[in-house]
Design a protein around this nucleic acid. Sequence first.
RNA 1: UGCCCGGUCGUCCAAUGGCAGGACAGCUGACUCUGGAUCAGUCGAUGGGGGUUCGAGUCCUCCCCGGGCAACCA
Length: 572
Amino acid sequence: MTDDRTPPAAPADDENLDFIRSRVRADLAAGRNGGRVHTRFPPEPNGYLHIGHTKAIALNFGIAREFGGKFNLRFDDTNPEKEDVEYVDAIKDDIRWLGADWEDREYYASDYFGQLYEWAQHLIRQGKAYVCSLTEEQVREWRGTVKVAGRPSPDRDRPAAESLDLLERMRTGEFPEGAYTLRAKIDMAHANMKMRDPLLYRIKRMPHHRTGSAWNIYPMYDYAHGQSDAIEGITHSICTLEFEVNRPLYDWFIENLPVPHRPQQIEMARLNLTYTVMSKRKLLQLVKEGHVSGWDDPRMPTVRGLRRRGYTPSAIRQLSERVGVAKRNSTVDYALLEWCIRDELNRTADRVMAVLRPLKVVITNYPEGQVEWLEAENNPEDPSRGTRQIPFSRELWIEQDDFREDAPAKFFRLKPGGEVRLKHAYFIRCQEVVKDAAGNVVELRCTYDPASRGGESPDGRKVKGTLHFVEAGHAHEAEVRLYDHLFREPFPEEGAGFLANLNPGSLEILEGCKLEPGLGQLQAADRVQFMRHGYFFVDPVDSRPGRPVFHRTVTLKDTWAKLEAKDGPAAG
RNA sequence: UGCCCGGUCGUCCAAUGGCAGGACAGCUGACUCUGGAUCAGUCGAUGGGGGUUCGAGUCCUCCCCGGGCAACCA
């Protein structure tokens, strides 16, 4: 997936492909499927998309695109109990945002309910399905266990005519839920539990978000999915590893039904990330119990959360490319996702200065009331981004962390008597530390070197540290939200459970942050780098005109913090 | 433990019987008006035993470890 719509060249013969693309290439070479490639993404509209889904989307859309094929969006809406249009709209919006294009091929498994029903009748007539009157509990009991064979339902040999009649009456709503099911007649002793007369239909007297109250029975996943693939002409039906045991059943239906096409199911490992959870159930619990502000909380691994955090579609796609495709259960280091977004934003985000935890600096030898404007480059990685003017005067803000009274040897920032450069401005030297009654440093009185304007001293004098700053008189104030991993542990589900591993410091809200003047003009969803802090995103939800709220998308790499953590805060 | 799938650097992915390679992370250094970026270097792996072969990560076999399957969920 890329932003432009030009299809890439098909992968070269000797190109090293993942196992799925290799298979697609082999199928093409063998002339299978009439030379077509057709994939699909089949979400169930019962929740929001998360980063795990983006791998499936990128893979399915990417394969179609690379091999000159087509990509469908199909909602797997076979369970009205859990599904809702609210999710349909959100899912479409997220997929579109990610850059995957299903053109006009937006389908629903519910579109096929009629065909599926006819095929069910076909199976009954062929003696390959029957209406079963066992209760839910009995079905489970009769099925046996993984080590003990099941036993046949007493209805297994019900005459076809009778099953046909019952199925029709199930459909029209004559029976209460649970009274009957339609089951395939396969093998109650099969080593694969999925093949022990699986259910095709269950009674659910419940309206569906698309078919209304037309149906009182709904097909099960196994019966609906492969046939939907067949109807749409899907050539490669990619799913996750847990469906591996379902494949024989997928194939059984395809072989026993007069389907127009024979799709093949291919399983791959789902994407897992450290420091997060991916199951819909757990994500829902985080929202419901208020551990996060909603599905779009910037700490959530949902697409909506990532969007609001400031991630870009291309960075998310990049993750899928970097992760690759295989059949081994794996958990990708969250640092890889962070690398993807830093790599992009380093190239595209303008640099600006923001002081998050302000400490006042007075330049004692700078004329009172004077303001001068200095030129600052917007992005050293991209000169075409140009420059802007930033103010400088007698009163400035610098970062509290950038001053230390008892500084270790490797501390290159401001210390009593020390000299540093203010980015794009002047060298300053700390002459005096002002404290309040409690002994807190509240102000620094410094002198500047007028000859160092622009950041270089004509005498060739070097300084080790360069600090960002904001001129006090023109500063904008803003709220800045800093985020950390939602969980403290790389594998939150281990041990006491994911809720016990929530990171209490995952959100820190800073008020009264000082921004350089141009930042009041930022628009919602703009991305910038706050120099020496990280990449920030203007929150489209809580920002107000002239009062932006920033989310920290990701920090910059912080070698100093690492050094300090290693040596201990007091060490030199 | 019945069946199925899978075990390669810390992590993720390659090597398709012929020199185990890349990326991220880590570490070292260079450079730097962001302790950013960049560049260079470096650490580091085939779960174990047998076998086939001139040659095995790859094939066979046994063992060990991990995952999946017994919803009227998907």
